[in-house]
C-alpha cells in the first residue's frame, strides 16, 4: 500500500494535525513503509478466528451506582490553559 498526498492530508485532518507541504512526501513514504510492514498480516488465514480485543478477553466489571469521587473542580481547572468561573475557555464556536 502506497499512500498518496491526498490520503495523508485526509488522515492528518482526521487526526487533528497540521502537516506542512514540505513534510507531505516524507509522511507518504514513512506511513507507506509502516503499512507495508502491517500488510504482512494478509499472508495469514484468519477465517473463523474471533478477534482478541484484550488479553484473556477481560470483560468490564460493573460497580454499584454510587458516588465515590468528591468534586475537585477547582483543583482540576487550576491546570487548564484557560478557565474562568468553573468553565474551560475556548475560541467562540457559534456567533
Amino acid at each position: 500500500m502506497t499512500l498518496d498526498s491526498k490520503t495523508v492530508h485526509t488522515i492528518a485532518r482526521l487526526s487533528q494535525l497540521n502537516i506542512d507541504d514540505g513534510e507531505v512526501d516524507r509522511y507518504c513514504q514513512e506511513l507507506s513503509n509502516i503499512l507495508s510492514l502491517v500488510e504482512q498480516m494478509e499472508q495469514c488465514d484468519t477465517t473463523d478466528i474471533e478477534p482478541m480485543t484484550h488479553p484473556f478477553d477481560a470483560s468490564l466489571r460493573l460497580r454499584s451506582d454510587e458516588v465515590t469521587e468528591t468534586n475537585q473542580r477547582e483543583k482540576f481547572q487550576a491546570i487548564a490553559p484557560q478557565a474562568e468561573r468553573g468553565l474551560y475557555l475556548v475560541p467562540k464556536v457559534i456567533d
Partner: peptide, 19 residues
C-alpha cells in the same frame, strides 16, 4: 497537537487513525 507532539507520536497517531 502539531506543535506539542513529536514526529514518532504523530506518525503513530496517523497510522492508528488510518487503521
Amino acid at each position: 497537537r502539531s506543535e506539542g507532539f513529536g514526529e514518532e507520536v504523530k506518525r503513530r497517531i496517523m497510522i492508528g487513525t488510518y487503521a
